[in-house]
Amino acid sequence: MVDNKTLQNKAREVISRDDVRRLIGWKRGTFGFEAAPAVIKDPSGADDLIFDATCVNNLASFITLEEKPPVPRGEEPDTRKTAIMVKGCDSRAIVLQLVEKAYERDDVIVLGIPCSGVIDRRKAREMFGDVAGAVEATCEGDKLVCEVGGEKKEVDRKELVMDKCLRCRYPNPVISDELLGDEVEKFADDDFSDVAEFAKKSPADKWAFWDEQFSKCVRCYSCRSVCPMCYCVECVVTNLRPQWTRRSTDISENTAYHLQRAWHLSGRCIECNECERVCPVDIPIMTLNRRMTRDVKELFDYEPGVDVETEPLLASFNPQDPEEFIM
C-alpha cells in the first residue's frame, strides 16, 4: 500500500501544475470506519490526503457530479484538468465513462492506487460496535490493523473488508497515468455463486424477498446519486413529463424505480458496490446488479469498464446474439 507521505507529495506536485484545476482524493473522516472524499484546489490541501482501508468512496462519481453554471458573458470556461485518485474498482468507472464519452481522456489525470480491500462499515459495526472518532486501518498481509480509539487491533482481513473485495479481480487500476505504490495480487475469481444461489429460489420467494426490500425504500436516490455511472443531467425518475415513475413511495413505484435503475446499469455496472454501501435502509441493491453482470458476461461475453476501446454493450450488437426466448 502506498504510504501517505508519497501520496501527499505526488498530490502536491500534481495540483501545483498550471493545467490542473482540482484533485480528488480521500482524507480522514470525522468519525468511524469511512474516510471522506476530499476535493483540493491548492497545494496546501494535499497535506490532508490519505489512503488506507477506510477509503471506500468511489471518487469517479465526482468527475461527472460537478455542476457547471453558465459562464458569465465575456469569461472563458475553465478547461483545466481534474486529477483523481482511483482504486482498482474505481478505475473501471473511469474507463466506462471514457467509453461513453462522458469526457475526454485528456480532461483527467488518473492516479492509480493498488488496493488490498476496503472496510465494510456494517461488518465493522458488528465487530467493534459504535465507535467514536475516526479509525485508521492499514493492510498488513492478511491482517488489517485498525486503530480504534487509540488502541491497535489486528483483524483477519477477510472478516472486515467488503464482500466485493473478496471477489475482486481488479485490485490494480486498469487505467492510470501514474501508479502509486506497488501492484498487489488479485484475490480470487468471481464465480457468481451468490447469483446462482439466489436464482434457486422460486418466483414467489423471489418476489416475497424483493417486496419486503423495495417496500423499505424511502427514495432518497442515494444509490443513484453515488453511482459513478448514473451521470445523466436529467434522470428519468425525476422527470415530470413524461413521468415514468411517480413520486409516491409504494411498492409499485418503488419497484419501478429499482427496475429502472438496475436496467440502466445492466452492462454498465462496474461493481464498486457504492449503491449498496450508501443505502440507509440496507436494500441489497447489488443483488440486482450482479445478476445483470453475470448475464452480460455469459450471454454476450462482455465485461464493462476494462477496455477503453470497446463499445458500450447496449449501443452495439452481434447478429449472432442469443435469442432462445424469441418466438
Binding site: 471522506a36 465526482f62 457530479l65 432518497c220 442515494s222 446519486s225 453515488v226 411517480r246 440507509p280
Partner: peptide, 25 residues
C-alpha cells in the same frame, strides 16, 4: 459541497425536515 452527492439521505432521515411536494395521480 464539493463532496456532496446531492442525495436525499440527510433530509429524508432528518426528524425535523418537513418539506413536501404535492402531485396529482
Amino acid at each position: 459541497s464539493d463532496r456532496c452527492l446531492g442525495c436525499g439521505i440527510c433530509t429524508y432521515l432528518c426528524p425535523t425536515c418537513h418539506c413536501f411536494d404535492i402531485q396529482d395521480e
